[in-house]
């Protein structure tokens, strides 16, 4: 299928790839893992502390969880606006992406970024540019699971 020239080109590309793989610095996985673990763990612990506080005041677990999510989202939004969340993210990596605060950061960062293109087609249209796909997939799976349950029962 391949002409000799194409084959030579493929071999050249492969050699180049090998060269790059030797030269390219690898991320410092151990350090990144420690940062992700500590920061992600602390964010979740803060959430648990709020939930426990609300539970002890007699609020139901479901409401306490929802309220906690809202507070964490608010804090993430605020710190994104102040420019701190982005700096935390440089170090914490997944530790500040995986928690719901990372979802909030993606939304706020997109909204802020497009402010200068106006509030409707800038902020409004772009607010979900990064976080939108998560909702799409979340909704689709949830509905699929629901449909399966309907047809199984």
């Amino acid at each position: 299928m391949h002409t000799p020239e194409q084959k030579i080109k493929e071999i050249e590309k492969q050699e180049y790839e090998d060269l790059i793989n030797q030269a390219k610095p690898k991320p410092n996985l151990a350090r990144n893992m420690v940062w992700a673990f500590v920061v992600g763990g602390l964010i979740c612990m803060l959430g648990q502390w709020m939930i426990n506080l609300m539970l002890s005041r007699g609020i139901s677990l479901a409401d306490a969880s929802s309220a906690t999510s809202c507070i964490l989202i608010f804090l993430a939004a605020l710190f994104t606006g102040l420019g701190y969340y982005n700096e935390l993210g440089q170090r914490a990596g997944a530790g500040s992406i995986v928690p719901i605060t990372g979802f909030a950061n993606a939304i706020v960062a997109s909204a802020l970024e497009y402010k200068r293109e106006g509030y409707i087609f800038g902020v409004g249209a772009r607010i979900f540019s990064v976080a939108g796909p998560t909702l799409v997939f979340g909704f689709v799976i949830a509905v699929l699971v629901g449909l399966i349950r309907v047809f199984l029962s």
Partner: peptide, 17 residues
């Protein structure tokens, strides 16, 4: 940055390269 990569305030780790 905003045209080619991520919104500037999104907390993203940069690859060392």
């Amino acid at each position: 940055e905003r045209q080619y990569r991520f919104p500037t305030q999104q907390g993203v780790q940069k690859a060392p390269s």
